[in-house]
């Protein structure tokens, strides 16, 4: 029985990915290139060598975290579209702490810089959470608006207030060695941390009272309130924790990969998180394969262009198709499970 349930749960994401790749192949073929060769190049660069895998996992690290941020929201009945803004805020805050604060040993400086990222990411999430909890404003609206505000704000900060001296580009100074995330066997160590965190989040939902609270609020707010669970607090927690994890993802990018904050990096990480969370069926462990797949494709897109003459944007296209294929059934189900949806779809019961 477990096997049957398993296959039914994961059928949608697997089919979604396959369909997206099939349509992608057709588009590559229309371009006049060989789809087989293109995909072969994509996958051998992403997964075929030690250095390829290292690159893939490096790319997957912030994606696991942004996927988790979206997942926590979904579990609590919230659609957190603001992961991009939360992640970028975290990336900026961590980078600032990484270059501005001097004279600390790495075992203090690095965690401190990451805590900066987490705190600021959580703060941004909390704004949307508070607007939802206390004013009833829908989180989709507020997080989209916050995304725009934050992207403009960090652009300004990195281009003016905290710009690297003598630099024309909008970017902060380079972080100090004492805030740089070391690599383990040439693998970015942030990845292992992200996996541990995914497992931790899964465990929290599976086994703890806090996870049960969030999940109950996500499934039936009236029943949650009636059972003594504070809906407001659950919304605040889900948005703050999601924002914090996104902020951590941004911090790991700044401190482990980019070495500073630069607004042109980090683009799309939060939005890929939505695809990954939905591919993972809002399961915290489910984000891992999705993040690795998408991380690999992102990392190897340029090599594919070199080998097969296919524009790297084809990867964006395939990911858009994945999102499209995976959301259609998911949205239908979500609509049915929410209170409004239940009103629309009810009628013929018992």
């Amino acid at each position: 029985m477990a096997g049957k349930k398993f296959s039914r749960t994961w059928l949608t994401p697997v089919v979604a990915v396959l369909v997206a790749f099939a349509i992608g192949a057709l588009l590559i073929y229309i371009q006049g290139a060989d789809p087989l060769k293109a995909y072969q190049s994509l996958f051998s660069h992403a997964f075929g060598s030690w250095s390829g895998i290292a690159k893939t996992l490096g790319k997957a690290t912030p994606l696991v975290l942004s996927g988790l941020a979206v997942t926590i929201g979904l579990r609590a009945g919230l659609f957190n579209i603001g992961v991009q803004g939360q992640l970028v805020t975290g990336a900026f805050a961590a980078a600032w702490a990484g270059y501005f604060i001097h004279g600390l040993p790495i075992y203090i400086h690095l965690p401190l810089a990451l805590i900066f990222g987490i705190t600021f990411g959580a703060g941004v999430g909390l704004i949307a959470g508070a607007l939802k909890a206390y004013r009833g404003i829908h989180e989709v609206i507020t997080t989209i608006m916050l995304n725009s505000i934050i992207l403009a704000l960090v652009d300004y900060l990195a281009g003016h207030v905290f710009q690297e001296p003598g630099q024309i580009l909008a970017r902060t100074p380079h972080i100090l060695p004492s805030a740089t995330i070391p690599k383990i066997f040439s693998l970015p160590s942030g990845f292992f941390f992200a996996i541990l965190l995914a497992y931790g989040v899964w465990w929290v939902f599976q086994r703890t009272t806090s996870g049960f609270r969030l999940e109950t609020v996500g499934r039936n707010k009236s029943a949650a309130w009636y059972a003594g669970i504070s809906v407001k607090r659950a919304v605040l927690i889900a948005m703050a924790v999601g924002g914090g994890i996104a902020g951590l993802g941004g911090g790991i990018e700044s401190l482990g990969v980019i070495g500073r904050f630069e607004p042109t990096f980090n683009t799309g990480l939060g939005f890929d998180g939505i695809t990954i969370a939905l591919l993972g069926r809002a399961n915290p462990l489910g984000v891992i394969p999705g993040a690795i797949l998408i991380g690999g494709m992102r990392g190897a897109a340029a090599s594919m262009q070199f080998d097969a003459g296919v524009a790297p944007e084809i990867v964006d296209l395939i990911l858009a198709l994945v999102l499209f294929c995976v959301t259609a059934p998911f949205l239908a189900k979500w609509l049915k499970s929410t209170e409004v949806g239940a009103k629309i779809t009810s009628g013929w019961g018992n």
């Binding site: 049960f212 109950t216 499934r219 039936n220 009236s222 029943a223 949650a224 009636y226 003594g228 499970s337």
Partner: peptide
């Protein structure tokens, strides 16, 4: 609305409060 979370198992519903 108040008594049950229909998508929860019987097990979880039996300890809801």
């Amino acid at each position: 609305k108040h008594g049950l979370v229909s998508s929860y198992s019987i097990e979880d519903n039996l300890v809801l409060n």
